Computed example of a mutant assay.
Amino acid sequence: MSQAPELAGNVQQKRKILSCVEYTRICQFINGYHGLAIDCEFELRNRFFQDVEPMALTCILQSELFNRSRGHHWKQDQRGKKLLKIYEEQKNLYDNALLIRMACVEGLNPVALCRMLLHEKYKLRHRSHISRFLKHPHLIDDPRLAANVQQCMISDNQEGSITDLRRRIIGEEYELKLKTLAKEAGIHFYDEQDLRRMGYDKTPDIKMILPFLYRGSVINWIESKANFGDTKGHKFNIQQQLHSYCNRFGPGIIIYWFGYHEETPMMPDNNIGITVLADFPAKEDMVFMQLAEGVSPTKTAEKTSSTSKLLGEFREAGSPAK
């Protein structure tokens, strides 16, 4: 029992920041794997890359499979008849695992395969009708097909209502973590709901009422991403969100909680005022304004002339776009 603290202290810290070589190795393993994505994820996390943050591996897998499926989408639309024919011919040879076996052979996500089969079998033209069958397999009039669809739903870690719910919960968990850590650090901020009430459309997770310094750089906002920051995904985030934040509010931070590619923080696109981190800023790296006693942060923020004097060269927080 006395050795427990020592053992706890020796737990190896999983790596979040990946070199180009290691990131490429992970992607090559994913693209060369034959089988279900859920099994590939198990192999990545428990056998081949045990020293890497597990959620980073999960995110890289998701990104690689998503990019692959986009490249073959036009082919998948033409495979429905063939897949339905195979299912009808072999459905009496297997119990509830036929569609899982077919997904492995065809290199498809189980839910994507179910979607193609349902589309072809019932001639469903609207995606919402197919989604209804996927969420409620008992509505399918073929009991054997319904059982196969149910098995696919719980065996797919890339698509489906279960996977969507898990990702949403993780995203909300890390947004809450950001707000909790910001409050503990003594940061006064507006959250997304506050900003929308003030008339903003695109909003970061938190916007500082008063900017602070992080390693000499002014920080006006922080965006939380429960994801791994590869260069392609980061470029997309800049185009869709971060560029707008910098234009309106000034420089800020994006946190990729599960790590990032080593080249992501050095991308030229970040020069508009984006700092990339894998965790909440360390307290010793932050410098805050000292408010006068008895003055609320909100009132102080409104006095822009006083704020600019105190901040010196600090860039003022932006106002809503006209």
Rank of each mutant, 00 (worst) to 15 (best):
S19P: 00
M153L: 06
K82P: 07
N157T: 04
Q50K: 03
I255M: 09
F133N: 05
L84M: 05
A8Y: 06
I38W: 08
K309A: 15
A146D: 01
A112R: 10
M266T: 10
L65E: 15
E263N: 14
K202E: 06
V287W: 01
F249I: 15
P211H: 00
D156A: 11
Q76F: 13
S131V: 06
Q76I: 10
N46G: 05
D205R: 03
R45K: 11
Q28R: 11
L310G: 15
A282C: 10
L113V: 14
N220L: 15
A292H: 13
Y33D: 12
S69P: 07
F228H: 08
S319R: 12
G318M: 03
H136W: 04
C104I: 10
E89V: 05
P110Q: 13
N92L: 12
P137K: 05
P110C: 12
V276P: 11
C246N: 05
M153I: 06
K309P: 08
L84Y: 00
Q90H: 04
M116A: 11
D279S: 13
F228G: 07
S69D: 15
C246H: 01
L165R: 02
G107H: 07
E89D: 09
F48K: 05
K299S: 14
E262F: 02
C59W: 07
E262R: 15
Y87K: 08
D141T: 10
E262K: 13
E316R: 01
W257F: 13
F228D: 07
E302W: 12
V11A: 09
R132Y: 09
D191M: 08
K202H: 06
E302N: 02
R115H: 13
G9P: 02
H126Q: 13
M116I: 11
H234Y: 00
L99R: 12
P297M: 01
S217E: 12
R15D: 07
A321W: 00
Y214Q: 00
H138N: 04
D194E: 08
Y174N: 04
H72G: 08
Q78H: 14
D77V: 15
F42L: 13
K82L: 05
R47T: 05
E106N: 09
K322D: 10
E106G: 02
Q241I: 01
Q241S: 09
L18G: 09
T24F: 11
H73K: 10
K14Y: 06
G199Y: 00
I162E: 08
P110F: 08
C104G: 02
K75M: 15
R166F: 01
I140A: 00
L181R: 08
T275R: 03
R45F: 12
S19Y: 10
K179C: 03
L44A: 08
I140D: 00
N237C: 12
P320V: 02
A56Q: 07
Y174R: 03
M198K: 05
L18M: 13
P5S: 13
M102C: 04
S224C: 03
H73W: 12
E302K: 10
C114T: 08
G250F: 09
Q150N: 11
E316A: 10
Y260A: 05
A4Y: 11
K202P: 05
R166Y: 04
D164P: 03
E22H: 10
W221V: 05
K177T: 09
I209P: 03
K177I: 12
S128P: 14
L99N: 02
F29I: 08
